[in-house]
């Protein structure tokens, strides 16, 4: 099986989306007959290439981070560019991998309905949407914090290779919970402020300006 991976992150090759896709693809390619091609949607040329590849693909994954509670503008641009080639598309199966900076599953929940409908609109078979949260810090987090998620994604890729499906039970395990207790949220708010945002602002010499209102 060949999998077409459309990376819809505006950060492209340095994206958290890529970090999440890596173990998934490793799992998928444990079977040496499986291969993949990754296209990046964060440039005009990349989107053009992605359309060409999409037309020939039978198994497709689109991954992206949540931007303003939906798909990033570049992904919407790509989706719109698929319409003129709709008649040329093969019989394809499609899945999505989406993630949000916030930890709760409640944020990624809503766009799933759109992705399901989109798949049907394009005439494809919808396999499901893998979604996860709390990914903004994934690059700087120690391995013990991310290992479980990355392992689950690897199993997900392996199961896709074995069954041709996205495992529903594992989707729910990866989401963990749609909502968190307020005390957990409060803790993660403090953590993100003092362990993540403030050090980053200070490193850039921008800490004093963090509440600036330059437009009024």
């Amino acid at each position: 099986m060949k999998l077409l991976v459309c990376n819809g992150s505006p950060r492209g090759r340095t994206s958290n989306t890529d970090i999440l896709l890596k173990p998934f693809l490793e799992g998928f390619e444990e079977d040496s007959q499986n291969t993949h091609e990754t296209v990046y949607l964060n440039s005009e040329d990349g989107r053009k290439q992605a359309i060409t590849s999409f037309v020939q693909a039978e198994l497709i994954l689109i991954g992206f981070p949540l931007y303003t509670d939906a798909m990033p503008g570049i992904v919407k641009e790509f989706i719109e560019a698929l319409v003129p080639v709709k008649k040329e598309l093969k019989q394809f199966r499609i899945m999505f991998l989406i993630h949000s900076g916030f930890s709760e599953g409640s944020h990624t929940k809503y766009i799933v309905r759109y992705l399901d409908k989109l798949s049907r609109r394009l005439g494809g078979t919808y396999l499901g949407t893998i979604r996860t949260g709390g990914t903004e810090g994934i690059k700087v987090q120690p391995a013990f914090m991310t290992q479980k998620l990355l392992t689950q994604l690897k199993i997900m890729g392996r199961l896709l290779a074995q069954t041709g499906k996205i495992d529903e039970t594992l989707i729910n395990k990866i989401v963990q919970r749609e909502r968190f207790w307020k005390i957990e949220l409060f803790f993660s708010e403090i953590m993100s402020e003092y362990m993540f945002w403030n050090p980053w602002l200070k490193k850039n010499g921008a800490f004093e300006k963090r509440f600036d209102k330059p437009l009024i």
Binding site: E77, E80, L118, S192, R210, L215
Partner: peptide
């Protein structure tokens, strides 16, 4: 367009980021 606002509007929506802060309100 394909069931949602245009990519043009979505692009403008994405670029609203400077009006919010990184800090989280719970």
């Amino acid at each position: 367009i394909v069931g949602f606002s245009s990519a043009l509007l979505k692009k403008a929506q994405d670029r609203l980021l400077p009006v919010i802060l990184p800090y989280i309100d719970v």
